[in-house]
């Protein structure tokens, strides 16, 4: 089952930051990578990504620069900023905690009855 819209929205920033942590990238490649990582289940609307990237840039979590694609076309690349690394660590801690909570609940550890 594909993830809900809310789930997609909530996971977008940690996913983008994680992808950029492994190397500079650009919009189209980020969308393709998310599709591949999710086994085709997570389809980001193409128009959704850029406003998020621009917001991250304004928050100085990422920075952008113009490069040239193999085709010779101008291409905007994004690079993770140092504050982006810190933000990612914080987000990962939240997600890990949530995952741990769900795992414990599934294991029945927190059931009081």
């Amino acid at each position: 089952m594909p993830p809900s819209k809310d789930m997609v929205a909530a996971s977008a920033i940690p996913l983008i930051l994680s992808i950029l942590k492994s190397g500079d990238s650009y919009g189209y490649a980020i969308i393709q990578q998310v599709r591949e990582l999710s086994g085709g289940e997570m389809e980001w609307a193409d128009g959704m990504l850029y406003p998020i990237l621009h917001r991250l840039e304004r928050r100085r979590l990422v920075k952008s620069y113009w490069g040239t694609a193999d085709t010779g076309r101008k291409r905007k690349y994004y690079r993770l900023h140092r504050s982006g690394v810190e933000e990612l660590a914080e987000l990962r801690a939240h997600w890990d905690k949530l995952h741990g909570m769900l795992h414990r609940l599934e294991g029945g550890e927190l059931c009081s009855t």
């Binding site: 919009g27 694609a69 291409r75």
Partner: peptide, 16 residues
Amino acid sequence: DARVAELKDHLYCEIE
């Protein structure tokens, strides 16, 4: 123009 160029690049990537 930067936003337009970024969207164009995206479109061309998909076309390619």
